[in-house]
Amino acid sequence: MNIHQSPLRDHLAAEYVLGTLRGGARRRFEQLLPAHPSLRQTVTDWERRINRLATASPSAPPPAIWRELERRLFPAPPRRSWWDSLALWRGLAITSVLVAAIALTPQLATSPPEANLPFATIRGKQREVLWMVTLADDGRLHVSNPRAMAMPPEQRCLLWLKTGDTPPVMLGVLPDDGGVRTLAMPAGMGQPARGELWVTMQPMVPNPQPPTQPLYQTRWQTL
């Protein structure tokens, strides 16, 4: 089977999208996709055509599906005794300072909370977007890699936070497969949406040393 032969490739892509390519052939075809961009393009073209059929017969889903989906994707934070929580007292202290600040600064009081959604875009040499980083309300970072990257073997891209003169702190491994990852902030990290984000490329080792130079760097922005 010569996959590079164009009519065959087109035909296999069509049958794959329609669902009539089955068993071993389907699996082999799927294995070829990651390494063959033009084959992926052929599949994309067929998906665009064939999936126009998808709109034919709507049916209201049971409400329980949405509730279950919400519970699965957005689990409530674990409950504990509120008076045990240092965060609560710290939060109250911060809130009272904020309330005082807002009371003294009328224009701040009018801006909605979403207006301060920190995000950062990490661009490559040709200004192409390599990663989008957003800081969620729960303090975690959501990183998306819009396009899968061809990485050298055994190498990973790491994300670091560089503030002031202190060495950068590692935030985690960046996705390079065109996907999305959520990175937890390291404990004790105060206000992460300050400073610069650094990206390095290096082999995977247990405790990587903080870099002195980034491969890419960017600053936080707010919406």
Binding site: V17, R48, N51, R52, A54, S144, G178
Partner: peptide, 22 residues
């Protein structure tokens, strides 16, 4: 998880969503 992967070249959004569930 993958909303960021959507591109208009991939077809209508509903067709793209349809391909995921299919």
């Amino acid at each position: 998880q993958r909303a960021g992967d959507y591109r208009p070249q991939l077809g209508q959004p509903l067709a793209w969503l349809g391909s995921i569930v299919r």
